[in-house]
Simulated assay, not measured.
Amino acid sequence: MLAKRLTVSAPGKAILHGEHAVVHGKAALAVALNLRTFLQIRPCNNGKVAIHLPNIGTSLNWEMGQLQTLLTAFSAGLDQSKSPSPEQMDKLREIGSPIVIPAATESLAALAFLYLYLSISAKYGQIPSVEIVVWSELPVGAGLGSSAAYSVCLAAALLTACGAIGCPLKEEKYIARWPEEELDLINQWAFRGEQVIHGKPSGVDNSVATWGGVLRFQSGKITLLKRVPTLRILLTNTKVSRSTRTLVAGVKDKILKFPAIMNPVLASIDAISNECENVLEAIALSPSQKYYLVLEELVDINQHHLNVIGVGHTSLDRVCQVTANHGLHSKLTGAGGGGCAITLLRPDTDPLIVEAARQDLSACGFECWETSIGASGICLHSPTSLKPEVLQIFSKV
């Protein structure tokens, strides 16, 4: 059982190549984004289970007796091999009654937490009175896997708290990761949390948050690339909202209307994903400048393709124009129609150029971060490994 506070973190995700084409059986490359969600779980003796979400201004708590009643009623049916049932979700909504807007971020976050807490308690032994604080560097609703990072952090923390998985962090270490079989268990439970939030997730986001690095996704099969480099990028949030469902439907309509035109475009996007995979493996073995030039060309070609299939946006065009003025190469990431873009940075890119591009993007009203892709997945942290701003957040709550 949990004897001391533990801190875990998981990365967000971006799509490097293969957006929309993946819906039609083509390959996509999903990458771990080194903007992370941090969770701290602490034992307490007040007879309550509490969760604090300062990013969205929410704090909730439940009496252990209240949860025990629900745990008894559902103990036979809560398992990582089963999807959440409508009956289970109705029961959870009853005790999640402080949240009154069913589709709100706060409500979904609370329901995912309750489902994972009760499911894991039912299978491995009830988790004692705890307090959880979750804080994220990821913007919510920007298509960067914030909910998956949250679910993976919850699963890892709760499984560790009840002893279902070990605690690999030793005193002499700053950061540690679980062995492969325990990561797989974390991922399975996190997927159930994602189902609570999204209904029918692909499993890509939680897999990226669990394993990190780069994952290839095609026709429902997820493969972790073994040798990948860490690449510097600028990540830009245009803050333009969009409907993924509408964009996906629009691409499908174009394919039906112009199959002879659109199918070759999708095949070309697939080829870009495959070529990029080969180049990433080559960079991991020998980081030659020539490979980064190829990556930049692939980014440019794919961005043109994404405009052709109808998922571009003037805000994304603006990101590409602004960064091109500084000799940089950008493309949308995710659904398109607004949302976010990534800009590749070569290892030798002048920091002054990066800062100038950031300032110009900010002047457009965009939000911009310099970060990296290919980051590590879910891990445990010692306090000395945490950024000062993370420690400050945890100390305030």
Rank of each mutant, 00 (worst) to 15 (best):
residue 11 P to Q: 09
residue 14 A to R: 02
residue 19 E to S: 03
residue 22 V to P: 04
residue 29 L to R: 01
residue 30 A to P: 04
residue 30 A to E: 03
residue 31 V to S: 10
residue 34 N to A: 13
residue 35 L to Q: 13
residue 36 R to C: 10
residue 41 I to H: 02
residue 49 V to G: 00
residue 52 H to D: 06
residue 53 L to Y: 11
residue 53 L to C: 10
residue 54 P to N: 10
residue 59 S to M: 09
residue 60 L to K: 01
residue 76 A to R: 13
residue 77 G to E: 15
residue 83 S to M: 07
residue 85 S to T: 14
residue 88 Q to K: 00
residue 89 M to D: 03
residue 90 D to I: 13
residue 94 E to K: 07
residue 99 I to C: 14
residue 101 I to H: 14
residue 102 P to C: 11
residue 103 A to C: 11
residue 105 T to W: 01
residue 115 Y to F: 06
residue 117 Y to S: 03
residue 117 Y to D: 00
residue 124 Y to S: 04
residue 128 P to N: 12
residue 128 P to H: 00
residue 136 S to I: 03
residue 137 E to K: 12
residue 138 L to Q: 11
residue 138 L to P: 09
residue 142 A to F: 04
residue 142 A to L: 04
residue 146 S to E: 08
residue 147 S to N: 05
residue 149 A to W: 03
residue 150 Y to W: 11
residue 151 S to I: 01
residue 154 L to T: 11
residue 163 G to E: 05
residue 165 I to L: 10
residue 172 E to I: 06
residue 175 I to F: 09
residue 176 A to K: 13
residue 176 A to M: 13
residue 198 H to D: 01
residue 201 P to T: 00
residue 211 W to V: 02
residue 214 V to T: 13
residue 215 L to K: 09
residue 215 L to C: 09
residue 218 Q to E: 15
residue 220 G to F: 07
residue 221 K to F: 04
residue 221 K to R: 14
residue 224 L to M: 08
residue 227 R to M: 07
residue 227 R to S: 13
residue 229 P to C: 09
residue 238 T to D: 11
residue 240 V to C: 08
residue 246 T to K: 14
residue 247 L to N: 07
residue 248 V to M: 00
residue 252 K to N: 14
residue 254 K to H: 10
residue 256 L to F: 15
residue 258 F to S: 15
residue 268 S to E: 12
residue 269 I to S: 02
residue 276 C to Q: 12
residue 279 V to W: 12
residue 280 L to P: 13
residue 282 A to M: 14
residue 283 I to L: 10
residue 292 Y to F: 15
residue 294 V to D: 02
residue 296 E to L: 06
residue 312 G to A: 12
residue 327 G to T: 05
residue 329 H to P: 07
residue 332 L to K: 06
residue 332 L to D: 03
residue 337 G to D: 11
residue 339 G to W: 11
residue 342 I to G: 07
residue 348 D to W: 14
residue 348 D to M: 02
residue 352 L to C: 05
residue 353 I to Q: 01
residue 362 S to A: 15
residue 365 G to A: 09
residue 369 W to P: 03
residue 370 E to K: 06
residue 373 I to S: 07
residue 375 A to S: 15
residue 380 L to H: 14
residue 381 H to N: 11
residue 384 T to G: 06
residue 385 S to T: 03
residue 387 K to H: 13
residue 389 E to L: 07
residue 390 V to A: 02
residue 392 Q to V: 06
